[in-house]
Design a protein around this nucleic acid. Structure first.
Lengths: 148, 148
DNA sequence: ATAATAAAAGACCTTTTTATCTTTTATTAT
DNA sequence: ATAATAAAAGATAAAAAGGTCTTTTATTAT
C-alpha cells in the first residue's frame, strides 16, 4: 500500500514534530539511528520533503532538520503525495483499474470504509496534531528490526 | 500490501472457479487475455499454484487449468501464502516490526479491524464459496488497463 | 580567515519484482 | 505413429524499489 520510502518519511516527520524545533535541529544521522531507518536513504527522503516544504533544514554546524509552524500544518497525506504520489492510497486492493461502487472488486466493500477512515486521518489532521496524539497515546515510531 | 503476483493469482483462481471444470479446462492464454494480465507471468504463477495443489492442470490438447472439488476448498489465504508468504497481510501498515496492541504504531487501531475483517474473509471462505459470491454479486475480476 | 559541520546534489549500486522467451515434456486427436 | 497442443521448466531480461557513496555548498563557531 505504502512504499517503505513513505513509511520512513512519515515516521521521521512525526518524530521531528515532537522532538525538534527551530533551536533544536536534528541531524539525519541522529534521527535515522533512533528510528533505526537507513540513514543515507532517509537523507534523500528529507531532501525531497524539504523541496516540498513539508520540513525545513539549515546547513552547517548546529544545522539540521526541524519543523516550522507552517510545516506543522501539513498533513501525512502531503508526505505520501510528496514521496509516492497520492493515488498509492486510492488504488484498488486487488489492482483493478476500474474498481468502484458500481464495478466493485471482490473486496471493495470491505476495503472502502477502511480506506476512508485512514485517508480521513491522514488528510484532516495536521502533522502537529497527529504527532501530539502519537505522543499522548504513547504510540511507537521506531522500526527496530524491520522485517520485510 | 499484496504483490501484483498474488493479485493476479487471486483474480485468475476465482475466475477459474466459476468458468472452468474438469471437462472445460482453460488455457493460460485465454484466462490472461480475458482478465488482461500478462500471460507468461500468469503461467509462472499457475505453475506454482499447481505445485501448491491450489489449482490443477493437464498438458496437451484439451488440456489446461481447472479446479477439482478439493482445490475449491482452498482459500484465498492459501493463494497469498503460496505466492507472497502469509505475513504479507499481517505486516504493520507503517512497517514497524514490533507493532501490536501494547506497542501500537500511530495507525494500529485503525488498521487492526480492517485487517481482521479482510483476513477473516480470506481465511474462512473457500475459493468456491468466494467465487460464488463474486458471481452472484456481479463483482469484477478483470484488470482492464492496470494503473501503477 | 579557517576549520568543522551538516545538508544538497548527483552518481551509482543492489535487490526484488515483474515480465518474457525458449526448450522440454506430457497428452490427445487424427 | 504422428502432428498438434498446452503446460512445465528454466534461463534471461527489464523495471522499480531500496540503499550507498562521493563531492559540493552553505553555515557557524573559533
Amino acid at each position: 500500500m505504502l512504499s517503505r520510502a513513505s513509511k520512513y518519511a512519515i515516521l521521521a516527520t512525526l518524530y521531528l514534530a515532537t522532538n525538534s524545533s527551530k533551536d533544536k535541529k536534528l541531524s539525519v544521522k541522529d534521527i535515522a539511528s533512533t528510528l533505526e531507518v537507513p540513514s543515507p536513504f532517509l537523507a534523500k527522503l528529507f531532501q525531497q520533503l524539504v523541496r516540498g516544504k513539508i520540513i525545513s533544514s539549515t546547513k552547517g554546524p548546529t544545522g539540521g532538520f526541524f519543523l516550522t509552524k507552517k510545516n506543522g500544518d501539513k498533513t501525512v497525506c502531503d508526505i505520501i503525495e510528496n514521496i509516492d504520489g497520492l493515488n498509492r492510497l486510492n488504488e484498488c486492493f486487488l489492482g483493478l483499474s476500474e474498481c468502484d461502487g458500481l464495478n466493485p472488486c471482490p473486496v471493495h466493500f470491505i476495503v472502502e470504509p477502511f480506506k476512508n477512515s485512514i485517508l480521513g486521518k491522514f488528510r484532516d489532521k495536521s502533522i502537529l496534531e497527529f504527532a501530539k496524539e502519537v505522543d499522548e497515546k504513547k504510540q511507537v515510531l521506531t522500526l527496530k528490526s524491520l522485517e520485510s
